[in-house]
Design a protein around this nucleic acid. Structure first.
Lengths: 222, 222
DNA sequence: TAGATTGTTAATCGATTAACAATC
DNA sequence: TAGATTGTTAATCGATTAACAATC
């Protein structure tokens, strides 16, 4: 896997949050929204919002702010959320189902064309309008479906083997929800979503501030 | 919400990944593991692994590495994963069910004592051994259950109102899976898990490298 | 012993924040 | 006009990486 670090990764991660607020502003009929307002809403510094928005190419007006419809478009375009991407759902368990059914992703161009699972009880059924196929047929079907990306939500022990099949079938982007660091062809883009890392942050915050005081005197740092 | 930024947040986020590898090493019967090996496995710099592990207080041996069982303990202790935390699952949809059933979280001390949902078809049933209660009873039950934290996986429009109830009921830590920035008492610790941000990174990587070439000539940066 | 690996101290890199002139 | 807000340029801050002596 190539070191495809996104330049400005922290900024890119904040853009969806801005988008959410700006869309609400659009729905409310506003024509302009200022970085100051967005910052207030998200507890950020106004300068940070302005810097982040600048990478999308949007140009604001002093005193007024940013034109709302153009700003929505600029963010969506920068993120590539203005175009559709066909995707496979690989692993149709609870997590996979939740992702496939998340309406926000559909709005961001994530278009599931097929799902795969090993559970015979699921094969043939549908989740959120997507048919579940036998995982054994992943290899042969993936190619003909012409999907470019896959959401990987299988049990961790199967992650690497499944990824291998996906790559062999021509998948070029994997959104990886397993806790396995995948070893794939350098051409393939992988984004790993590590839920444990978020829980680690929460745990340390709880520890530090003795939020759920079970461990007396363990509060480290200040 | 207080600005409870975890010092060393990036390091803390990597610790669970290390832990995963080190546990495998423990299971394999190794007595020592070097930072070099861990780094190789995760495609990181050895110096970064050493720096990260240092914050847990572990002390390694030159030439050998870190004592495996002590290292596992040190990380778990630093993260607070060596103790149990009673938690409420609020919102028993697909995502909530996935989280409650994720065995890794149970191993990290996340102990669900009750779930809540508005769906009458779910109330009274169980998911992963946890009884689902009527969301309307959240306020009265939360207090008596003495849970200290809550996993919030309700539809976004209900997020703030539900959080208010939780805080009023004494919950002091919220793991927030909605895309709403919660406004809560400064005492309360909130960790927001934003799936869209990960998808934004993946999208930009795909764009940049023309992975799923739909937009000719849009590859920005190099 | 020789050499791999640690932990420390310093250098680099990138992201955030500050300052401020430009402007609608 | 007056003042809020932008975009730019510079300063600060923190995280990553490099260098290297210590050591088992």
């Amino acid at each position: 896997m190539l070191k495809t670090k996104v330049s400005f990764a922290p900024s890119v991660r904040r853009l969806p949050q801005y988008l959410h607020i700006i869309r609400a502003s659009l729905a409310a009929g506003d024509t302009y929204i200022s970085g100051t307002v967005i910052a207030q809403e998200l507890n950020l510094e106004p300068i940070q919002v302005r810097k982040d928005l600048a990478i999308t190419g949007i140009i604001g007006k002093p005193k007024k702010g940013y034109p709302v419809p153009a700003l929505v478009q600029a963010i969506e375009r920068y993120l590539g959320w203005d175009q559709s991407h066909t995707a496979l759902l690989v692993g149709a368990g609870n997590l996979g189902s939740a992702l496939a059914g998340y309406p926000e992703f559909a709005r961001h161009g994530l278009n599931f064309v097929a799902a795969f699972d090993t559970d015979p009880g699921k094969i043939g059924k549908q989740i959120h309008g997507v048919t579940i196929h036998d995982m054994a047929k992943l290899g042969e079907l993936a190619g003909s479906l012409k999907a470019c990306m896959a959401v990987l939500a299988v049990p961790s022990p199967n992650a690497q083997a499944t990824a291998d099949i996906l790559v062999k079938a021509g998948i070029r982007a994997i959104w990886n929800f397993t806790n396995i660091k995948l070893k794939v062809d350098p051409e393939v883009v992988v984004q790993r979503e590590d839920l444990s890392s978020g829980f680690a942050i929460l745990s340390v915050m709880m520890n530090t501030r003795n939020t759920c005081g079970t461990k007396p005197g363990h509060a480290k740092e200040d």
